[in-house]
Design a protein around this nucleic acid. Structure first.
Length: 458
RNA sequence: GGCCGAGUGGCAGAGUGGCCAUGCAGCGGAUUGCAAAUCCGCGUACGUCGGUUCGAUUCCGGCCUCGGCCUCCA
């Protein structure tokens, strides 16, 4: 049974075979840190986190790099507007991003390189490209010469003529070819800049990823991931400059791209303003529910985001945690996730199918009566959950629902009163107390063993 | 204009040439003092028009609708 991944480069699903099974390499384009990440930005982080978990389960060593773009014209604009240094902004939002991702159950990648820490590597790569005749200096800029790379367009499936015909941007006069893109650009004194052979300047958008990949992962990586909108121009350009810098060595063996989140069927994007930040969503829902919602559609499909998406995700998780809570006193047997679960994820990360398997595990656990069987099924459910990065909390913590404040002692007291009434067969009083508890927003549940559990209503 | 993707039951969302997705919600039953939870059961879903086929939601073609990239963007 092998892992199958859809490769954007070949437009087909392929069996994944790492170049070096002893060291699997993956790079995912991370955030530009100048404001709060929205839930659409979180999709690749969560999707590739699942892939990271899956790879780790299969291979002894996985090196996963996800970068921070901490120098960029939008950051510059924000810094200028607030009259502060770009570092103040990038440091703050890097920390926010890390917090948000942790709340979504995203594991910390092996490496999280920052662009500003790799200026020397970028300059070196640009110099190599110039030396090899793939790049040239013009008016303080260094540009990659697209016609110098025969394979240009292979990733995005477009030819140069199409691109020029459809270009909506004015072509800078110093470009040799309209498709040429910037590797390095000059900075005026009021902008961040670094000394370089071409004067004080700053990197273009694409070069940072190639330089950091070369440094941390190598010339050829196994998997390169990111959002669908990065295919062109970002990844096409990366592929071009990376391949040329390395004398034709393949840049990435598998390219993976996640689909977008939409709001009312329209792409969620900062420029349209139709965004929900992870930060604000976390105020109303557990991170795990957001994670479940993000994984509820296959990663290449569009996913329309709404309050309902989150509500349904949370209710589904409630059910799974109820099943786990019911066996809280039973030690899970250490075991693997069910084969069907692995099979689903091995098929190009089919998380919806994996979730159906989790549902099957939940049902089996609820139906089990034998203690040994329960221990085994609990182990399977937890192992299955671990692959998706869910169901690892203590059920009591899940139901405590950190987003709502409630006086636990008061509820326990009311429950005790009610149980006393029940014991005295004063059901009228018992029902009155339950109504009082419900008024606080709490649902109670009498268990067959005589105990009464409570949890937050929605 | 070029390239790409999508249209599945109330909602979300897999998948397949003939049989079951799954979850949420709803309905009926078991259970319960009543509930809740759980379990069992239920709903003739595949944009449209043709074609291929013994048989198509699934393959082919046309059409309609929606979305994305081509500019910063996950």
């Amino acid at each position: 049974m092998s892992l199958i991944l859809y490769n954007t480069l070949t437009r087909t699903k392929e069996a994944f075979t790492p170049a070096d099974p002893a060291r699997v390499t993956m790079y995912v384009c991370g955030p530009t840190v100048y404001n709060y990440a929205h839930i659409g930005n979180a999709r690749p982080a969560v999707v590739f986190d699942v892939l990271f978990r899956l790879l780790q389960a299969r291979y002894p060593k996985v090196v996963y790099a996800r970068n921070y773009t901490d120098v960029d014209d939008k950051i510059n604009a924000a810094a200028k507007e607030q009259n502060i240094a770009i570092e103040v902004i990038t440091r703050k939002f890097m920390a926010v991003y890390q917090e948000d991702m942790a709340a979504l159950g995203v594991l910390t990648p092996t490496v999280e390189p920052c662009a500003t820490h790799h200026i020397a590597e970028m300059v070196a790569m640009i110099e190599a490209l110039v030396a090899k005749g793939h790049a040239y200096e013009a008016e303080g800029h260094v540009l990659f010469n697209v016609p110098s790379f025969e394979g240009y367009g292979q990733l995005s499936g477009r030819n140069r003529d199409d691109m020029i015909a459809g270009a909506r941007v004015e072509v800078a006069p110093y470009k040799k070819d309209p498709a040429d893109f910037v590797l390095w650009k000059p900075s005026t004194p009021d902008l961040p800049g670094w000394d370089s052979p071409w004067g004080r300047g700053r990197p273009g958008w694409h070069i940072e990823c190639s330089a950091m990949i070369e440094k941390h992962l190598g010339e050829t990586i196994d998997i390169h991931g990111g959002g669908h909108d990065l295919i062109f121009p970002h990844h096409e350009n990366e592929l071009a400059q990376g391949t040329c810098a390395h004398g034709g060595a393949p840049y990435a063996r598998v390219w993976m791209h996640n689909g977008f989140l939409t709001m009312s069927r329209e792409k969620m994007s900062k420029s349209l303003g139709n965004i929900k930040t992870v930060h604000e969503l976390l105020a109303d829902a557990p991170g795990e529910a957001l994670r479940w919602a993000l994984l509820s559609a296959h990663y290449r499909q569009p996913l329309d985001w709404s309050d309902e998406t989150v509500t349904q995700a949370k209710r589904t998780l409630d059910g799974a945690y109820r099943a786990l809570e019911a066996v809280a006193s039973i030690n899970a047997k250490a075991t693997q996730a069910p084969a069907a679960m692995l099979e689903a994820l091995d098929d190009d990360l089919n998380t919806p199918r994996a979730m159906a398997e989790i549902a099957a595990s939940v049902k089996a656990l609820n139906s089990a009566s034998d203690a040994g069987e329960k221990a085994r099924l609990k182990g399977e459910l937890l192992a299955a959950g671990a692959l998706l990065g869910v169901l690892q909390q203590n059920p009591a913590d899940w139901f405590a629902d950190q987003t709502k404040a409630v006086d636990g002692a008061q509820i326990e007291a009311l429950i005790a009163d009610r149980n006393a009434a029940r014991k005295a067969r004063d059901f009228k009083e018992a029902d009155r107390l339950r109504t009082a508890i419900a008024a606080i927003g709490v649902v109670i549940e009498d268990r067959p063993d005589g105990t009464t559990k409570w949890r937050m209503a929605e």
